[in-house]
Design a binder for these strands. Structure first.
Length: 167
DNA sequence: GTCACCTTAGAAG
DNA sequence: CTTCTAAGGTGAC
């Protein structure tokens, strides 16, 4: 019984992101795919509920703010149903990191009360369905190294640079 | 069940 | 200094 998600594009200076919504809120956000400017994305907004269009407006504003290295004021509701408690607590902790700040994987692990689950935190970051808005890119390795990023290390470096963070 | 992963502190060489 | 190990959560196989 897979809930069908509504797919809407967000055009930014970095390309076209794709946002997917459930009845409960924003469920997923994807980076622009290389070479697929607007392929497979439902651009018709005709059948989309007003509620979701309103969330989408908030998503677009917030996304562009982060891409420009500015602070985000409001986010749409996020739908994390189907995810584990551990992942949700990691993502909650990530959302507390403000623009221009960074944390290490170890700090996140301690913040959620599982100081030894450092690698698991890395795993949860990688499983984050809403990159950029849930700022997994603000998590660095403990020794100041950049660590990894499934969306591409380049992208992580660029986002941090726009926020004024030096590696 | 086994393995790899966006990790890290610590111990050994 | 460098290299190795172990540990926690999760998903892929």
């Amino acid at each position: 019984m897979k809930t069908r998600l509504v797919e809407l594009p967000v055009s930014t200076r970095d390309g076209q992101f794709v946002a997917r919504y459930s009845e409960k809120g924003l469920a997923e956000l994807s980076f622009p795919e290389v070479g697929t400017p607007r392929c497979g994305v439902r651009t018709s907004q005709r059948d989309v509920p007003t509620k979701i269009l309103r969330w989408h407006r908030a998503t677009a504003v917030a996304l562009k703010a982060v891409l420009a290295g500015r602070a985000v004021k409001t986010l749409p509701p996020l739908d994390w149903s189907g995810k584990t408690e551990f992942q949700k607590s990691v993502w909650r902790a990530l959302r507390k990191i403000r623009r221009g700040q960074t944390r290490s994987y170890g700090e996140i692990a301690r913040a959620i009360g599982k100081p030894k689950a450092v690698r698991a935190v890395g795993g949860a970051c990688g499983a984050n369905p809403i990159p950029v808005l849930v700022p997994c890119h603000r998590v660095l390795a403990a020794n100041g190294k950049i660590g990894g990023f499934s969306g591409g290390l380049n992208r992580k470096r660029e986002l941090l640079a726009r926020e004024g963070v030096k590696i």
